[in-house]
Design a binder for these strands. Structure first.
Length: 501
RNA sequence: GGCCCUAUAGUCAAGUGGUUAAGACACCGCCCUUUCAAGGCGGUAACGGGGGUUCAAAUCCCCCUAGGGUCACCA
């Protein structure tokens, strides 16, 4: 590792303290989930501490409900945290609105040292100034005029009822370095940054301010967050300097983009973790996918369970370039996990979709569970997400078979069909127990007895039983339907095709 | 517009001066198979452009272009 690069060696990664600090203003975004994941993976990898902090200083938009939803989604994805709003910890409280006294203490100090000042400008005033600067092609930036307000003038404005905000006085002519674990050293000029607000007129700190004080007090060693914060970082670094603190290591991950390479937005598909959860994506698939979006493993393997990610994750393999959210790959991964997870688990997760679609009632008997497990086993290889199961199960529920296409009835009129059907009826009647396995053997025996090719046996039966020339394994289908429904369907479709049953 | 980040196939992405430029998704073909799917095998497909540096550049430097971020009393 290169020290000049700001990168830490393995030993100094031990016991790191990282945090995921969402603002509880809505559902957990897919990008937020990845940020959380990278923090979590790093914490777990190096025996560190994961902290969940709620950045709820936007009183207008924050809600406890969003906070709860975010925690639920994080847990669903399999992440946990050692300190946070719900579990507490010795660096709490973990909600910024509950830490106001702490911020005030430092605000006082900054004010006294002349590094911050009251600003009485109104929103309209500021907006007008901004527009003026923009129209002249200048960088919109606060002029700093309130810095020059005399105590008397300040008193007068206060008396008139103006509630001031507090701004940080940005030093002029400074080079502000940001030491970033994924981007190396990035330099900004302080002159490009206007005096920014650190305390709003309602007394709440702004993000840039609270974040610095909390990260310092919570002894955060690595700040891992999205690239949209890179431009904020010099402001924070100046605050660290003004307060006499050493900044943590930063790691800014690239953004996740929509298919058209623009920023991911609700208009362009699903952006919240909840939406994927509701569609029946498995948490390990989402985690695997997110990890691969912006991080790459050393080998050629692409399938990683969370624990395997923990064992391998490192900041130096995090990508710098923005990544398009490639839903096809997520689908593929999810399909992989659906096919390879224990059948009972998949069944349990799939049943609610069948209930919702009206295929099943609310409470299933043990026999019904056994039966629906066979159904899930028969169709899960078609699924890319669990919600799709309803597209594949109609053949197991609806006995009023219709022919899917014109030519299918022709197959039922082939000369061997009556013999095949008769053989099936006979075999079925003589079968002690009907299971996918016994059905498979039974069908094989019929083939042998009749000396017919597979296509001559299976195809007509498939069409007679489903009205379609493709679908799940025939022996599974027969076991799922059972004797009576097989008989009913044979009678119906052969009749429709005008074949003697 | 200023500042900042980024630039390898359609997408994710390996690659850190000398490689036949990995791998994965998607796509196409073949095999397997009673069908579809799954699976196996194989294929199409990439270093944004221009200048340097060097015996040698995807790799280092500069310019351009493109995309993204940010410039809030939102985080």
């Amino acid at each position: 590792m290169d020290e000049a690069d700001g990168r830490g060696g393995l030993a100094e990664m031990e016991g790191i303290r990282v945090r995921f600090a969402p603002s509880p203003t809505g559902p957990l975004h897919i990008g937020g989930a990845r940020t959380a994941l990278f923090n979590w993976l790093l914490a777990r990898r190096y025996n560190g501490t994961m902290i969940l902090r709620s950045e709820d200083t936007d009183l207008e938009r924050s809600s406890l409900e969003s906070e709860k939803n975010i925690m639920e989604d994080l847990k669903w994805l399999g992440m946990d945290w050692d300190e946070g709003v719900d579990v507490g910890g010795s660096y709490g409280p973990y909600r910024q609105t509950e830490r106001l006294e702490l911020y005030q203490k430092y605000t006082q100090r900054l004010l006294e040292e002349g590094r911050a000042y009251y600003c009485f400008c109104s929103g309209e005033e500021l907006e007008a100034e901004r527009k003026r600067q923009l129209s002249r092609g200048e960088t919109p930036r606060y002029s700093g005029k309130c810095y020059h307000l005399s105590p008397a003038e300040q008193e007068r404005l206060r008396a008139e009822g103006y509630k001031p905000a507090i701004r940080f006085r940005v030093p002029t002519g400074q080079q502000v370095p940001v030491l970033d674990e994924v981007r190396g050293r990035v330099e900004f000029e302080s002159d490009g940054i206007g005096d920014f607000v650190i305390v709003k007129s309602d007394g709440n700190p702004t993000y840039n301010y609270a974040c610095v004080i909390d990260d310092h007090h919570m002894e955060i060693t690595h700040v891992i967050r999205g690239e949209e914060h890179l431009s904020n970082t010099p402001s924070q670094v100046m605050l660290y300097e003004a307060l006499g603190w050493t900044p943590p290591a930063f790691a800014h991950t690239s953004l996740i983009l929509a298919e058209d390479r623009s920023k991911m937005s609700k208009r362009k598909g699903d952006t919240s973790v909840k939406q994927y959860r509701d569609k029946g994506y498995l948490p390990e698939a989402v985690v695997n996918f997110l990890a691969l979006l912006g991080w790459s493993p050393e080998g050629e393997e692409e399938i990683f369970l969370p624990q395997e990610l923990v064992a391998q994750f490192s900041l130096d393999r995090v990508s710098r370039s923005p990544a398009v959210f490639n839903i096809d790959k997520l689908r593929w991964l999810n399909g992989h996990y659906i096919k390879n997870s224990p059948l009972d688990r998949i069944t349990k997760l799939a049943v609610p979709y069948l209930v919702q679609a009206g295929y099943l009632g609310e409470d299933l008997t043990p026999e019904e569970w056994e039966w629906v497990t066979l159904v899930v086993a028969a169709v899960r290889e078609y699924l890319t997400c669990l919600a799709e199961i309803t597209d594949h199960v109609d053949i197991f529920f609806n006995d009023e078979i219709e022919f899917e296409e014109e030519g299918l009835q022709e197959v039922l009129r082939q000369e061997q069909v009556p013999r095949v059907v008769a053989a099936l009826r006979k075999a079925l009647a003589g079968l002690p127990e009907l299971t996918p396995a016994t059905a498979k053997k039974m069908l094989g025996d019929i083939r042998k007895d009749l000396q017919l090719g597979g296509k001559k046996v299976y195809m007509p039966l498939r069409i007679a039983l489903t009205g379609s020339n493709h679908g799940p394994e025939l022996h599974e289908l027969i076991a799922i339907l059972g004797r009576e429904r097989v008989e009913y369907r044979l009678g119906r479709t052969l009749g429709l095709a005008g074949v003697e049953g």
